[in-house]
C-alpha cells in the first residue's frame, strides 16, 4: 500500500505477513518437499473453503480444513513413517482411492458445516419454548394466588 510522508514522497510499506508466508513455504519446500507435495495436492478443498467463506469467524474453513486434514493425515503418516521421498509422495497423490478419501473427508467437513447449524437452531428454539411454558405456568400460579389484578397491573404498566 502506498502512503505519503511529510516530504510528499511515496514509499512502499513492507508486507511482512506475505513475506513470512513465502519464507515459511520456501523453508518447508526446502525441508520436506514430499510432504509439501501431498499438502498442495490434498488440501485444495480447504483453500477453496477459505476463499469462499466470507465470514469473520471462518467456521466453514475450519470445518473443511479439519476434515480435509483428517483425510490427508493417514497418508502423511505413511509417508513419514515409510520412505520419505518424492516418489512415494507421487504414488500417494496419484492414487485415486487416496484422493477420494482425502477429498471425501473434505466433503464431510462441508456436510458438518451445513447440517449442524439447523440442529442447533432447532435445539435453541425448543429450549426457548420450554422456558416460555415454564414462565406461563408460573404466571398462572401467581394469578391463582394473587388474583387477576396482578396481570392487570402488568398490563397497566405495559400501557
Amino acid at each position: 500500500m502506498a502512503s505519503s510522508d511529510s516530504d510528499g514522497k511515496t514509499t512502499r510499506k513492507t508486507n511482512w505477513k506475505a513475506l513470512s508466508l513465502f519464507v515459511l513455504i520456501v523453508g518447508l519446500i526446502w525441508i520436506s518437499l514430499p510432504t509439501m507435495l501431498m499438502v498442495v495436492v490434498g488440501m485444495p478443498p480447504t483453500f477453496v473453503a477459505w476463499i469462499i467463506d466470507r465470514s469473520y469467524q471462518k467456521s466453514a474453513t475450519y470445518c473443511v480444513a479439519g476434515m480435509n486434514f483428517c483425510g490427508l493425515f493417514p497418508y502423511l503418516m505413511d509417508l513419514w513413517m515409510g520412505v520419505h521421498s518424492l516418489k512415494a509422495a507421487s504414488a500417494i497423490v496419484t492414487d485415486v482411492f487416496a484422493l477420494l478419501v482425502i477429498y471425501g473427508a473434505a466433503a464431510f467437513g462441508w456436510m458438518i458445516y451445513i447440517t449442524i447449524p439447523p440442529v442447533v437452531g432447532t435445539f435453541l428454539t425448543v429450549m426457548a419454548q420450554r422456558r416460555v411454558a415454564q414462565l406461563r405456568t408460573l404466571q398462572r400460579q401467581i394469578v391463582e394466588e394473587w388474583g387477576e389484578s396482578v396481570a392487570h397491573s402488568v398490563t397497566g404498566q405495559s400501557h
Binding site: 465470514s55 469467524q57 471462518k58 467456521s59 466453514a60 475450519y62 470445518c63 473443511v64 480444513a65 479439519g66 476434515m67 486434514f69 483428517c70 493425515f73 467437513g109 458438518i112 458445516y113 447440517t115 449442524i116 447449524p117 439447523p118 440442529v119 442447533v120 437452531g121 435453541l124 428454539t125 426457548a128
Partner: peptide
C-alpha cells in the same frame, strides 16, 4: 435474532466439532 444467533452458534459448533474430531483422529 435467535435464528441468527443459532446459525452463528451452529457454525461455531460445526467448526469446533470438526477441529475436535480432527485432533482426536490425529
Amino acid at each position: 435474532a435467535r435464528a441468527e444467533s443459532a446459525e452463528r452458534l451452529g457454525q461455531q459448533t460445526a467448526a469446533m466439532t470438526s477441529v475436535v474430531v480432527t485432533l482426536i483422529f490425529i
